[in-house]
Design a protein around this nucleic acid. Structure first.
Lengths: 198, 198
DNA sequence: GTCTATAAGCGGATAGAC
DNA sequence: GTCTATCCGCTTATAGAC
């Protein structure tokens, strides 16, 4: 019965899958069962509706990550929990990841800064602290980006991977992904050393 | 003097930075110094122009990667060359990467398959063979995706990284990125082992 | 091959009745 | 709050002169 809430969730799905320009106010209204002008009773214009729908979807994702990394467990355990949580969140809600991708591609400086401050800042800082603890001598920024990239890029390529050689359906399982990423982070490409590196 | 070539390169830049819908035929024509209807002397419609501009930009990128990985050098050396080449190509031409990102986000199944067959297939297969040689017991598909992700996601986030803690300008240097990725692939997060994992 | 003029349609947004 | 009716600008694409 909360029309405003219905609009935001319906709009987020449409924007995530089709992009801002390919979704008309008529499309959004149709998905909620009303007419386009009624949308203007809830939002001043299309851009405000779009920005609020992003915030609506990303709400709570950052908190879930913060919980995963918190606590007094050893750093490696917290990293494993973080990676598993990240993989699970965006595998279960790929539209959220698509919205972020579109925003990174299209957002101007101001919007990227807002998104960073409201969503990315805290989880990234947590990851930064974690890798600094695990690997004090290395560049923490590069490492934190790499951890995010390993998890998120894999999910972002969900449409493409089935077309590439070696694909198997279990690659889409977030737990399989998380284990793979943690193994790679633990020991690199060659874990044991059957063919000695160098 | 080759109008068709000028159109394709100008259109690719516009499409990469603004997206398909935000670029009008007038915009493209304006960038080349002609009027919109003149475009239809060279391309049947906007979509054909778009698809040809992508192909025009991605032309040659796959070959460069193939050259980097070829030869009789040790597998690790070839991997290092591949990573360095990948980082260099897309740091120097970020518009090409943006076009790929947009295509992955928006492309339907048919277009993704075409793009895969014409551009991604060979470089990915090369990488697949390489990691299979380096790490026979592991899942080659997951590993190949991870290598790509480590390089490409870092470059894709060029707009966002300066807003995140720990950023330094040298992170945008493709050689710095390549060294970082290779170090990570060689030994994982913790190279020596000051705090024993587990 | 490029131009001007124009067709035909869709987009966001508003006015005003209910 | 939602509706119908409508405005107006911009878009792709075509027609036909040069």
């Amino acid at each position: 019965m909360d029309t405003r809430h219905n609009i935001l969730t319906a709009a987020a799905v449409l924007f995530a899958r089709n992009g801002y320009d390919k979704v008309s106010m008529r499309d959004i209204a149709g998905a909620v069962g009303i007419r386009a002008p009624a949308l203007y009773n809830h939002f001043p214009d299309k851009e405000h509706l779009y920005l609020e729908s992003i915030a609506h979807v990303l709400q709570g994702k950052a908190e879930a990550l913060a919980r995963a990394i918190a606590g007094a467990a050893p750093a490696w355990t917290r990293l494993e929990r973080y990676v598993a949580c990240l993989a699970r969140i965006f595998t279960e809600d790929p539209d959220a990841l698509r919205l972020i991708q579109r925003e990174v591609l299209n957002g101007d400086d101001a919007r990227l800064r807002t998104l960073t401050d409201q969503v990315f800042q805290t989880p990234f800082q947590d990851m930064l602290d974690l890798v600094q603890e695990l690997s004090p001598g290395r560049d923490a920024h590069l490492l934190a980006i790499s951890v995010m990239a390993l998890v998120l890029d894999h999910i972002e390529l969900a449409c493409l991977r089935p077309l590439l050689p070696g694909y198997r359906p279990e690659h889409d399982d977030p737990e399989v992904l998380a284990r793979h990423v943690c193994t790679l982070l633990r020991a690199g490409l060659v874990d044991a050393a059957p063919s000695a590196p160098r």
